[in-house]
Amino acid sequence: MMSKMERLYRAGREEIPQEAEHIQTISRDLFDVIDIVNVQSARAGDPAILVDMLTIGGDLYDVLRDAVTSLNNCAAAVIATADDFRRTDEDAASDYDKMSDSLKGSQPLPVSAPPEIKDPEAEGATTVVGGDDGHVPPEEVEVESTPDPTKTPDEDKQDHEDAEAASDYDYQREQRSGR
């Protein structure tokens, strides 16, 4: 049976760091999804349904992103706790001595938190292009929200009629008819 000490070190050096990596991977994938949806939403004129989804996605992402940092801290806190017990309690020290060398020696590095996403629900989008192949430096690009059409069909039709009326031919026709 696993000792308490071994359980703490396994949690702090294996279970929780693996969980941090797992959430980091999910967060990165979610970041990419939100980025794509945000850009496409801007192109679609930011329809309310996508703004709803981006609001939820942004709030969800923030928690997952913070969870990566908290999981790093959880792992460190559990190890600090185990270390405290090892120093102050004979049974703990004895359990520690019985642990495998690989568990004693493992020192997983903290997992880095994915980048921030700023208000994906806001109008338009900001995204980064390039930088994938190492040749083109990454560049931040603004994507404007596609506006509604500026003219109704009736207004556009009037413009075509006005353009026709202003033409040479109509002028000549008016001259001929004496109008």
Binding site: V51, V63, D66, S70, A77, D84
Partner: peptide
């Protein structure tokens, strides 16, 4: 969309949406 947004806000109001920030210090 507005219902799902409302559901999320209810959970946020109950503080069940976020996880607390955790320190890296010993808990003993």
């Amino acid at each position: 969309g507005s219902r799902i947004l409302g559901l999320m806000k209810d959970i946020q109001d109950r503080r069940d949406w976020k996880l607390p920030e955790v320190s890296n210090e010993s808990m003993v």
